[in-house]
Design a protein around this nucleic acid. Structure first.
Lengths: 150, 150
DNA sequence: TTTCGGAGTTCCTTGAAGAGACTCAGGAAC
DNA sequence: GTTCCTGAGTCTCTTCAAGGAACTCCGAAA
């Protein structure tokens, strides 16, 4: 974990990084998304230190990204994405698009997304919520918002 | 920096994290995007250690996200986003959408995006590149792709 | 010839990540 | 009833990255 507290910055990127910017956190979310809901599963899949996994899971639960559900009379728990966590996975889907395009190499993408609405394997295109046209980094101006720092 | 090498995993999230997953990297990209192109500017804006900033800038240049341009006869350099880096900012734009929604609080979003095409302040909606309908985490199935691990 | 300012580099301290052993609770086996 | 097993953590120790601050280097201006 970085020592600097990103959560206090007047920047939604920094604040989001405060929640999922620590090493392993996005991969934990990925694992939970694809159905690896238990401590042992995630630990073995990622090869992450048990101590760090405990810290990450607690942090993500505290920030409302994951929820902890008992699944047995014994003290056993599963982790599941909350609505907030599922929306965070949208960020990871765009990240996958970038990685697929620039880092996949000759082998091609490791995973594919099939879109329910059209049934086709596809990828995410960022569009404008207002007009529906593509909305990339080169298509916008950045303005100060109401929550801007003094 | 995490000791574990994410770049070797068969996962576009992990590979992307290998490029921009280290602490500060996304904020460096944000600063460069909004026109803070010089070492001193970024260092003062973020309050980042000079040593770490040097490491991050070198890493991002190595991975083709930033390019280094001389701007004087003296050994002075500016950093600019490459096309690859600009596409990476798309990921940050989606991240901003999540942070604005879940972490901005009463003050509202710190920055706003005005879309060139429609002229309105807006936000990113992830859609399917094939059919144009919304494409969120709940709208897809995940399938193994050609580059999946053995 | 000295001064200045941008862009790093070096060094030391602190603290997070990695690895692996240990604990704890409840159920199953004997 | 005692022992074993298993999932889910905790503890401890070592190593290496982040923070902070001083130092260097280089060309230009005074």
């Amino acid at each position: 974990m970085q020592r600097t507290n990103f959560g206090d910055m007047a920047c939604s990127i920094a604040r989001t990084l405060d929640v999922v910017g620590e090493p392993w956190s996005p991969l934990v979310i990925r694992d939970v998304y694809v159905g690896m809901n238990r401590f042992e599963q995630i630990q073995q899949d990622l090869g992450i230190s048990r101590k760090v996994l405990t810290e990450r899971l607690n942090h993500l639960v505290e920030h409302g990204v994951l929820e902890r559900r008992p699944y047995d009379n014994r003290p056993r728990f599963e982790y599941h994405l909350t609505p907030r966590g599922l929306e965070l996975f949208d960020v990871l889907m765009v990240m996958v698009g970038w990685g697929d395009k620039w880092l996949a190499g000759d082998a091609g993408p490791p995973v594919l997304y099939r879109h329910h609405a059209c049934g086709e394997v596809s990828r995410v295109e960022p569009t404008c919520a207002n007009c529906g046209e593509p909305m990339h980094a080169t298509d916008i101006d950045v303005l100060p918002g109401p929550g801007a720092a003094a």
